[in-house]
Write a protein that binds this DNA or RNA. Structure first.
Lengths: 217, 217
DNA sequence: CGTATATTTGAACAGAATCAAACAGGGTGG
DNA sequence: CCACCCTGTTTGATTCTGTTCAAATATACG
């Protein structure tokens, strides 16, 4: 549930609007940690762009098994759909700012605005590439490789040695198609091997980036 | 390696050209079984549309593990890429007819032709949805469910009771992230349970469609 | 401080992988 | 037309990785 709606004129500098063709088309929304942005099977009326914060997209199967499609960061488009409804639900993992653009607006704009059409196309392909990479990762890697993989990615994103883990162990498990126990064991193993060390539960220090990278490969 | 180049004017009726905005942009190519259409890491110079036949896209990891991204049928676009090179290679599983369109041509056309832009967008999203579904399938299903899944899909595509299996057991294994032995065992198990029966190695009869569907769910 | 929740650890188990061998099928050449 | 060989597939025995069930331990929060 959005806690506030920020007028795009006041939230985005005029300069940004010139380089960003999407901002004028939508409204800025804010979500708090654990807020639901949209639900699985909802009408896919809006497309969202993450402006800040982290969002997870999850899919709940009939049998209760949960799968996380991806973690999304600033710049990512979410809610892109082929059909009428959302395949995944989306929830804020941290406080988030999102730009919501009505799908019909976006499609109409893309019709005559090459820049928007190109941006959509590019983002869609990037997402496709990411999902395909993830598919290989899930399909052909061991538990330790999968966990090392996501940690390496998070570390790469932050750049610093101290890396925040915005998601729970369960989130990581559902993203990697492992159980929470296995994820936990791999964390312990990485610590035992002096590759990482945990600083509290939601923060880690990468002690041996090379080893992490090697495991993730 | 293409065996022949067919002039689009002679291969496609004029009527088709009116409803299909892509035909005039490319050339028709033919490939025989096991021909390579493009290789992993090749420059992604062309996008292809499958006109007839079946194509598989495969990715070979550094460690030799092979993954099949998808099996593509008539109407599918393949070779869509974000970056400069192909993530996957593509090979003909059966004799194939493909329409090859230069990527630059396609992008230029999409720039001012809304129909082409829309078609690209739609196909990209469809592909994205399929990969995401496959991700869930690989990540959260047992061996028997995965094999039943692909067989149900093939059966649905053919419609008839007798279904051709254009791909080898190894292909199926690499598509489902299983070993060839496990795939074979699941085939045997499905036969023992009277769900399917093999007619030679590359054709099956679906004896109990409901059971197959239930296992695939 | 106490309670609810999240995470870690342990032991036993299960499913798929691996290693090894037997068994078709499909062509080919005699 | 048949015997043979090459390749792809099936089957068997064993091992191993990750799951499951259970319990202990942290952590966060009121």
């Amino acid at each position: 549930m959005p806690l506030s709606v920020v007028n795009p004129e006041t939230s985005a500098p005029a300069a940004a609007a010139q380089t960003d063709p999407l901002s004028p088309l939508g409204v800025q929304l804010r979500f708090e940690r654990n807020d639901e942005i949209f639900a699985q099977e909802d009408d896919a009326e809006f497309v969202y762009r993450v402006e800040s914060g982290v969002v997870r997209t999850t899919r709940l199967a009939d049998d209760g098994r949960r799968m996380i499609g991806a973690f999304h960061y600033a710049g990512d488009l979410i809610g892109l759909e082929d059909g009428e409804t959302h395949m995944f639900s989306a929830e804020a993992l941290t406080p988030c700012a999102l730009l919501a653009v009505r799908r019909s607006t976006l499609e109409a704009e893309a019709e005559h605005n090459g820049e928007v059409a190109h941006l959509l196309w590019t983002e869609g392909l990037r997402r496709l590439r990411e999902v395909q990479s993830h598919l290989v990762h899930i399909g052909r890697k061991s538990a330790i490789e999968r966990v090392a993989g996501i940690l390496a990615e998070l570390a790469g994103r932050d750049g610093r040695e101290e890396v925040d883990l915005p998601m729970s162990r369960q989130d990581i498990a559902d993203y990697l198609s492992l159980t929470i126990e296995t994820v936990s064991r791999m964390f312990s193993q990485l610590q035992a091997r002096k590759v990482i060390s945990l600083v509290g539960l939601r923060r880690m220090r990468v002690c041996n980036p090379d080893a992490l990278q090697r495991l993730a490969a």
